[in-house]
């Protein structure tokens, strides 16, 4: 059994918070460059130039790409043959978030109670931690800070199995078009199909982590991704919702077995500053 120190998880997570907030992943930057070539709208071209300059500036000056440094959402894969020297992974990750958001001057965006007093916790905790046990003795941590503007445009629907492929296309396209300029398009569209209600939502979020433009391994789903993307971009919503050829950079679908009575579909959006960072301990 390999032992990882609690403190090393804390330090690593703190660094990950700064990295994810300030450095746009290479695949996202490449997608912005590629999409700019396909754009013809005058305002939209201006916006693409601003996104690219923003990414350069954020990296060079260590400034967050977006002031909404988000809810710290972690996907952890913990080997069955690894353990911490003390405490729990949840405690270590939260301590890392607390330290990282302070150290890197990130915005604290979490309120303790959602409905009544809505008081800011002042250190951006608690985080959300999705923990999965896997074989081996490694600990892999992926952080996807999630902004409120794009998260608020999420959608979930329990379709009838008879709604089929067309039902999925219509629901996803409609959700993205209705979101308009709110989620800061061009967006990355995460879609979860199947599972249960909450698992479809989980898959939609996880789909956002895939390298941009990498199609689904299943050709049927890859084809579906391409069709949905084409329909979204034909809508003309465009960059910032102010018109243009590119409303979304990519559509990523994850799927899972589901109940014979159900066809759950969830949509989760990331803005063009599609942040994520990962580390293996």
């Amino acid at each position: 059994m390999r032992v990882i120190s609690f403190d090393s998880v804390v330090t690593t997570v703190a660094g990950l918070c700064g990295q994810a907030a300030c450095i746009l992943p290479d695949d996202v930057l490449a997608a912005l460059h590629t999409s700019r070539q396909k754009e013809s709208g005058e305002l939209a071209l201006d916006f693409f130039d601003q996104y690219i300059r923003n990414a350069e500036l954020a990296k060079n000056e260590q400034l967050p790409l977006c002031q909404d440094t988000g809810f710290a959402v972690f996907f952890a894969e913990m080997g069955a043959d690894v353990k911490l020297d003390k405490g729990t992974l949840y405690e270590a990750v939260n301590e890392g978030v607390r330290q990282g958001y302070l150290k890197f001057f990130l915005r604290k965006s979490i309120v303790a109670d959602p409905l009544f007093d809505r008081k800011n916790t002042r250190d951006n905790t608690p985080c959300i931690l999705h923990l999965k046990q896997v074989p081996g003795e490694q600990l892999k941590l992926t952080l996807a800070p999630k902004g409120g503007g794009s998260e608020n445009m999420s959608a979930l629907k329990m379709l009838k199995p008879s709604d089929g492929r067309q039902g999925v296309v219509d629901f996803v396209v409609d959700s993205v078009v209705k979101a308009g300029g709110n989620p800061c398009p061009p967006t990355v569209v995460g879609v979860g199909i199947g599972g249960t209600m909450e698992y479809a939502a989980f898959m939609a979020k996880k789909a956002l982590l895939r390298k941009i433009g990498e199609p689904s391994a299943d050709p049927r789903y890859a084809d579906l991704e391409a069709e949905i993307l084409q329909k979204i971009n034909a809508s003309g919503v465009g960059s910032q919702g102010l018109g243009g050829d590119i409303t979304s950079l990519a559509v990523h679908i994850e799927y899972h077995p589901c109940h014979l009575a159900s066809l759950p579909v969830a949509v989760n959006l990331n803005c063009h500053a599609a942040r994520h960072a990962e580390v293996i301990l």
Partner: peptide, 11 residues
């Protein structure tokens, strides 16, 4: 409209 998601540039 300001450019959403370009917080560093706006700063």
């Amino acid at each position: 409209a300001a450019t959403g998601g370009a917080g560093a540039l706006i700063a």
